[in-house]
Amino acid sequence: MNLIDRYVFAVTEHLSDNNRKDVADELRSNIEDMLPDSPTDRDIRGVLEKMGNPRKLANEFYPTKRYLIGPNLFDSYISLLKLVIGITVSVMLGVTILGWVVSFPDNSNYVSLITDLIANAIGAAVQAAVWVTIIYAVLERTGVSEGQMPFSKKEWTVDDLPTGVVPPSKKISRAETGLSLFFTLLFVSVLYFNPNLIAIYIHENRSTEIIPLFSEERLAIYLVAILLITLLQLIIIVWKFIQSKWNLPLAIANTVQNIASSVLIIFLLCDRQLINQNFFKGIADLANTSANQIIDSWYRGTSIVVIVVFIVIAAWDSISAFFKAKK
């Protein structure tokens, strides 16, 4: 490639496909216009240097958002990234160690524990970084970074002015956000990576029998829904982290998330194939009753109580968010 080709390529390589050829053709004809007839190498160098750094020229052509996360969100991105990576890595380490402890007596192999720990920690850190980055990139492009409501192009009014100090009643504390982040990640990593940890452990004759709560095959059906709801939860957490006070769209998103997780809980608890039959047997043995009795009292009583409690908490959480947003 000659110098002009290389220059044109350097300018246009980052432009979008539908513009690239036209910009390239025009740039080339302009450069050739600036050159004398039968130009020497020196003439070409002179003209290209006059045109300047190709990257700068490319920026002039398309001064759009060519960055993932801008300066407005960068600080908050970095601090949340650290928090999320810290939490996911420690949750994964915890889950891995717990999994190793309960796999007694096959757990004498320390080498495999250490490789598992390293692999899981790295995997968790990468996952955390990817998701946090994606969420921030989306929020960056929906206007949250300019202190706007996402997806709206509403003009700024005085009402949007921060009240100076956010009243404590309206404030979302970082500790609270961090805590919900921790439990969300704990919940999803246990369900996703090692659902068998939720089990009863019967220690008998120097061996431990583990009866998992869930039937793993059945749980797999729900995994997509669980992951999607978790993702929504993570988006809300990030959004809370950025905004650090309640507002209407956030309260609406929070309600949507609460409704979705309530529906999921109802499905999970009413699904008679989700809970391992052996688990009921195990409980029955411990309680000296029949498995049928346990099953009956679970589906007729306990699960309904759990659902009602869950829905009441979800409703309370949703409604109080609206009140906090209004204040």
């Binding site: 025009e26 004809s29 302009n30 600036m34 700068k56 020229l57 052509f61």
Partner: peptide, 23 residues
Amino acid sequence: YGYSLVQKLEEKSTLIEAGTLYP
């Protein structure tokens, strides 16, 4: 076209960088 405009402006002693004008 791009370069003719640069020249035309230059003749009227308005200097504008080609790298600014084309975009």
